[in-house]
Amino acid sequence: MARARGQSIGEGLKTPHTVSLKVLRLTRPSLAQQFPLPKANSDSVYDFSPSAGLAYPHSTPLATNFLLTPLLTLPESFQSAYVGEVFSCTLSANNELPADDTARSISGVRIAAEIVSPSNPSGVALDLEEPVTPASSSFAPGASLQRILRLNLQEEGDHTLAVTVTYTETAVGTEGRAAGGRVRTFRKLYQFIATNLISVRTKAGDVDGGRYALEAQLENLGERAVTMEAVRMNPKSPFTSHSLNWDMPGATQTDAPVLQPGDIMQVAFLLEELQGEDTGQEVPASSPAADKRFILGQLNVQWRSAMGDRGSISTGWLTGKKR
């Protein structure tokens, strides 16, 4: 995760906190890779075990010599955060008391999180997912309290995730009775930048009376490949939209388009005005001399990257101009 800033506040300065907070970004799990040694190696003087280099040493019908294996692996690093994707993290508050510390106990642990984004500088509280079946109520040394947050990233720029942990530390008397407790709290800040993954440039043109062509260029600005799941035009009445792309009826391409980093892809739609409907919604012209513009609809782009991590963005209302 991005650097943690401003460790603890307040009373924590006096004695170290007995609860720690750790964060793991939850992108999709990945498939473990393997680079096995060549198998049919009968002419070798020295023998390596046939399982050396295999991702797991068990023989099942799915254990092959292929690079990718069916073994899931937790996310490796923080990676980039992109607009249109879900930002998910797991937060863990951990009891750091030594196992043999009988003089203190911890209870009432709570985690709260809020996100500060460019449009919400004062911060918005986030809902945190809890386990469906709550873990055991005791919070013994070494135990953890886990929460997960999911956040739709909708704008570019600096984001700060602020996590507050509150807990009660109780001093335990000689007979095992509580001798006094205090509520302690600390807050950690994690900063990251959300950037655009897919940029969309559009152009609308009048084909003939009542028909418009909408073209768009999609560019992968990120550092990983994406597979286009759907590129759709959501037309505004009275228009209907026909895709002229790989997914159009009768198209022969079956594989979804892949955009490698830096790749640009061109898509187009034909928008037709339905007969008998009201004429399209006119955009108020800034000057009387301006051409009449009609709202055609919105373009929506949906993609998935490695292991199915999903993202989607929509443009604003796109307009067409009557000749």
Binding site: L31, F66, L68, T69, P70, A225, V226, T227, E229, T254, D255, A256, V258, W303, R304, S305, A306, M307, G308, D309
Partner: peptide, 11 residues
């Protein structure tokens, strides 16, 4: 596994 790695779940 290759399709999953690419993120093309329908394929």
């Amino acid at each position: 596994l290759t399709w999953l790695r690419m993120g093309d779940l329908s394929a």
